[in-house]
């Protein structure tokens, strides 16, 4: 009888211990799983931030390099071309006195070539560093960009904004939007064989949206994503947007062509005044 009681007690203790272990296992699995997920999330966030920082640095370096090239073009080549033009003018006057028609013709051709080269250098410099964007803002910069394109191409480009006075944004945001607009328009010209491009800028208190629509051959955005056909241009757009938490959507309108809509959340403008985006100063840009 006593043995029976001892057996029951032993069984009771063993069963309680086993059940406690079972409860502990269940609780441990739940706790450990939760903790590991939190750690994974932290690591993923760190990786995401690191990648964003890398992208940011790469784009900053690109802008700095553009500025340096623009500066070199202006300071070195631009100055030398101006001096060449001056020398040619002097030479032209000297040749003019001799009265040789053939020499005069060659001189005029040389002068015109030098002037044309100066114009090209100025255009390239302006393209490299959008000084209008820094000085006057996004609306003016886009309008200037459109004017230049319409001069050079047989294109109709329209631009509209939902507000007449587009408030100035942070330097990074404005430059991102400008570069994306440039890339989308250049893509439309290069690949879409379009005759009309529409650019629209929508600004709300929280988001800024940029839409570029063309009437060209269009493309299937899903196919491009599936087949990994996005070129450096589209990847560049996505990289720039990743830094500012923006998104881009490519659509295929029913009436043909293609449309891209980029959205960027409005960021608070930095209190310190940004460095002037002037091509003629040798300074590192931090956008």
């Amino acid at each position: 009888m006593q043995n029976n009681e001892e057996l029951k007690l032993a069984l009771l203790i063993a069963s309680i211990a086993m059940l406690m272990m079972a409860f502990f296992v269940i609780s441990f699995v739940m706790y450990y799983q939760k903790k590991r997920f939190e750690e994974e999330k932290k690591i993923s966030d760190i990786e995401k931030n690191y990648n964003r920082l890398l992208l940011d640095t790469a784009l900053n370096s690109e802008e700095t390099e553009r500025r340096r090239i623009a500066q070199d073009l202006h300071d070195d080549i631009g100055t030398m071309l101006s001096l060449t033009k001056l020398s040619l003018n002097q030479l032209s006057k000297m040749i003019g006195t001799t009265g040789d028609e053939k020499e005069d013709q060659i001189m005029k051709k040389s002068q015109s070539l030098v002037e044309e080269t100066i114009l090209h250098v100025r255009r390239i410099t302006r393209d490299l560093v959008p000084t209008t964007l820094e000085r006057f803002g996004l609306l003016e910069a886009i309008e200037e960009f459109i004017d230049k394109l319409e001069e050079d191409n047989n294109l109709v480009i329209s631009f509209q904004a939902n507000t007449e006075e587009f408030p100035r944004q942070g330097q990074k945001l404005e430059l991102t939007l400008y570069r994306i607009m440039q890339e989308l328009v250049n893509n439309a010209i290069k690949h879409a064989s379009c005759s009309r491009i529409e650019i629209s800028l929508e600004s709300t208190e929280e988001m800024i949206g940029l839409r570029v629509t063309d009437n060209g051959v269009g493309f299937d955005p899903e196919k491009i994503k599936e087949n990994n056909l996005a070129g450096l241009g589209l990847l560049g757009i996505e990289s720039r947007l990743a830094i500012v938490n923006g998104t881009v959507q490519y659509e295929k309108p029913l009436n043909g062509g293609s449309s891209a809509f980029a959205q960027i959340p409005v960021m608070p403008i930095a209190e310190n005044k940004p460095e002037p985006l002037h091509p003629f100063r040798r300074e590192r840009v931090n956008i």
Partner: peptide
């Protein structure tokens, strides 16, 4: 787990 733990002994 609880069922078989209670059963084991």
């Amino acid at each position: 787990l609880l069922y078989y733990s209670s059963f084991l002994f």
